[in-house]
Design a protein around this nucleic acid. Structure first.
Lengths: 246, 246
DNA sequence: TTTAAAGGGTACTGAATAGTACCTCAAAGG
DNA sequence: CCTTTGAGGTACTATTCAGTACCCTTTAAA
């Protein structure tokens, strides 16, 4: 979709200014290179506007004005507001997805899951993710396909990474075989509160310390809920709010 | 806010048509009564439009047209689009809140929590709640106060009910004193998946059977995670996806 | 029965919108 | 060096929208 705005006219000849331009290892001419840059710049500006005002509230004229160029230029890249919006969604989803960092692989199960929970929290409370949630939610009635694209390219990949990770590293410790469900529940335990608080802007953003505490609690809760031997993961003295009495 | 559109001019005199009109036990004249009815009707129609098109997408002219009356009438009730929107948010939040049904109070802890989880799921996947989430999310940048009002009058009350319920009925069974946190985690376990699926319209709405299964799983997970004796709530043979091997 | 308020209908204002037309100029490509 | 392509600038169209003005009818209240 929208690739017609980024023509790849094969191997173009040597540019006058000397040297080649590369994208993804492909040699391309300077014209194509500039066009790609311009396209990226447009998407970046459009993202600001859509994030701030929403789809209906954002104005193509305002975007063109901030870009400095003329409207004609904007329309030569994206033939309609919908297509520009779609490009922003795709680009942002691709930016959010990334790979999950499972680097704490050598530590204890509790530490591993704490680290994973911390990563999940960080990702779900990142401003770009929060703004994307705000932007995409109301689109499900008007353009469900767009929401699906966002989900497939963003959250879905994270879901899969987590499920794979649990299957590989925690297969023996859990009583369930449904690693997708378990992963979803880990995400829910780790980020659910922060998600709503961030989404609705009800409180100040959580501090690193709060995130750490929440990540550790989520890991304990998860290991108790899904572990074969839940009593091994006693929360007493490890978590604020635990009662003194055993 | 907006109460200037609903004048309560004290105890007005007898209406010609005979009899009194009552609202909240107060006697009011027929004019006031009709005005309140009209106001409610406007909010109902406006809600449809805002739910379908969002704040920016909805049109006051279209709302007035569907109401049948003239624009002048609409503006005499709500002096601006923002005020109408605020009224819709308040009205809807008040409608959603209701009381939680804790009627399964005589059963086992597992049954009690299953029932509670089922109620939570039902509430969070109800169309009016889903649409309200979609509508309110993007408002947090443009009108944070409105989001706060919605939260206080809707989700916050549910949060409190659940925390109170856990404190009263499960105080002895849980290792934590933080019943708000525990309640939030129960909600997360019960409804998190369904919440995103509903919000983004990714799948068909869950069937009653799926909701029942999820509610039971959430109850087990919660009792293992937060129970003093998690091993008592063994999921084997109670939950799909549990491994055969002990 | 009188009267004053409210609702309905139509037409309007002024502003903002998505998208187009046309021309000019810089620069990339050959 | 010359030609083509794309980008900038300005002005435009047609539409839609929030909100207003004006006038007529209905009806509740006294």
């Amino acid at each position: 979709m929208c690739n017609d705005a980024v023509p790849h006219s094969g191997f173009s000849s040597l540019a006058k200014g000397g040297g080649w331009y590369h994208i993804d290892g492909m040699k391309i001419g300077k014209r194509e290179s500039q066009r790609l840059q311009k396209r990226a710049q447009i998407i970046a500006v459009a993202r600001e506007h859509f994030f701030e005002k929403g789809f209906e509230g954002a104005s193509m004229s305002a975007i063109a004005a901030q870009l400095g160029g003329s409207k004609r230029t904007l329309w030569s890249y994206f033939p309609s507001k919908e297509e520009l919006f779609a490009a922003v969604v795709e680009d942002t989803a691709a930016g959010i997805r990334g790979g999950i960092d499972f680097s704490a692989a050598g530590d204890s199960p509790l530490d591993q899951l704490t680290h994973l929970s911390r990563t999940i929290i960080e990702r779900m409370t990142a401003p770009i993710a929060v703004q994307m949630f705000r932007l995409i939610s109301p689109m499900s009635e008007r353009n469900p396909e767009l929401v699906r694209i966002f989900f497939e390219r963003g959250p879905r990949r994270t879901q899969k990474s987590i499920a794979d990770y649990l299957r590989t590293n925690f297969g023996d410790l859990l009583w369930t075989d449904d690693y997708w469900q378990a992963g979803d529940d880990l995400v829910a335990l780790a980020a659910s509160n922060f998600h709503f608080e961030s989404l609705w802007g009800l409180t100040n953003p959580p501090t690193p310390k709060q995130k750490d505490a929440r990540a550790r609690l989520a890991a304990i809760l998860f290991l108790r809920a899904y572990g074969r031997h839940p009593e091994r993961w006693a929360p007493i003295d490890q978590v604020d709010g635990a009662k003194e009495t055993a």
